[in-house]
Structures are given as C-alpha cells and as structure tokens.
C-alpha cells in the first residue's frame, strides 16, 4: 500500500496520543491479532487522555507532524471515572486554535477505542492516514498570518 515507486504518494507522519488503559491496549490488541495498518502513525502513551495538554498537540505540529491522533476510552468507560470528558471538551477548542493558526482542523482526530477494539483502532488509523494523505503535507505558514477563510463561522459572537 505504501510501495508505489513510480508515483510515490505523500507519506504523512502522525503522532498518536493513546490512553494506557484503552487505546494503547487496543493497539496492542491489533498487534496481537496481527491486524495490518499503514506505518505512518507513531504512538505515545499517556496514563489518560485527560493528561493531554493541548500544548502536546501544538508541539507535535510544530515539530513536524502532519497530523495528530488523540485517543481514549469511550465516554463512560474512563479508567479514571470521567477524565476523558475533559478531553472531549478540550478537543473542539484545540481544533479551533489550530484553525486560527492556519492548520486544517481535520488534521486532528479524536478516536474512542476500548482495549478490545483492536480492529476499530486499525481501521480508524488507516482511514485517518488516507484523510491526511488527501490533505497533503502540513504547509504551515510559520508567521501564522494567513488564516483560512473556512473557519470564520467558528468566531465567537461578540
């Protein structure tokens, strides 16, 4: 899927933040079950998706990632009772800040995957990689001066 020498497709690099209790174990489950997915995602383990400081996401983009995956337990299943809801609330804010910085919000994906959902994890990672491939390399205007017209509707009303 990644090897087409003539027209070498763009290979995005994706940083994936996973929760120790569910999505990291879903990735383990995908491995144990030998489910295949494209090698573009590099996972980083947190104890909980609630640990995800938005700074980490921006750091990943600043450091050269083309997209970022945030994954955690399904709402209601959090190992720490309800901390994934905090991630759920932070997520739209992060997407909005990205838009303001000139990064397509679609480069940030939220995925709920329980420890048993290896197949879902593999499928969703593959799908996300294709979506990012379609977006192309992150072409971040370093000055941040060009804000795309598209997220204008997200402006906070006065």
């Amino acid at each position: 899927m990644t090897d087409t020498p003539e027209t070498k497709p763009f290979e995005p690099t994706i940083i994936g933040f996973t929760c120790n209790w569910c999505s990291y174990r879903a990735a383990d489950m995908a491995g144990i079950s030998r489910m295949k997915y494209a090698p573009n995602v590099r996972l980083l383990r947190l104890m909980c998706s609630g640990r995800l400081d938005p700074m980490f996401v921006f750091k990943a983009f600043a450091g050269g990632a083309d997209a970022v995956l945030v994954s955690g337990c399904h709402p209601g299943d959090c190992h720490y009772i309800n901390q994934n809801y905090k991630t759920l609330r932070r997520f739209p804010l992060m997407q909005r800040v990205l838009a303001q910085m000139g990064i397509e919000p679609a480069r940030l994906k939220l995925l709920w995957a329980s420890a048993s959902e290896g197949q879902i994890f593999a499928n969703e990672v593959n799908r996300f990689i294709e979506e990012v491939r379609a977006l192309g390399p992150l072409n971040w205007n370093q000055t941040g001066s060009e804000v795309p017209a598209e997220p204008a509707h997200e402006e906070v009303p006065a």
Binding site: D28, A30, G31, I32, M35, Y37, A38, P39, L43
Partner: peptide, 17 residues
C-alpha cells in the same frame, strides 16, 4: 518501547517498519 505490537506485527513494508 514497543516495536512488536506497534510495528512488526501490524506492518508489512519492511523498510517503513
């Protein structure tokens, strides 16, 4: 660091892996 569950068991392209 996991290069089995996250790499060798889920990828097929040796160079990329």
């Amino acid at each position: 660091v996991s290069i089995r569950e996250q790499v060798s068991w889920v990828h097929t392209d040796k160079a990329a892996a």
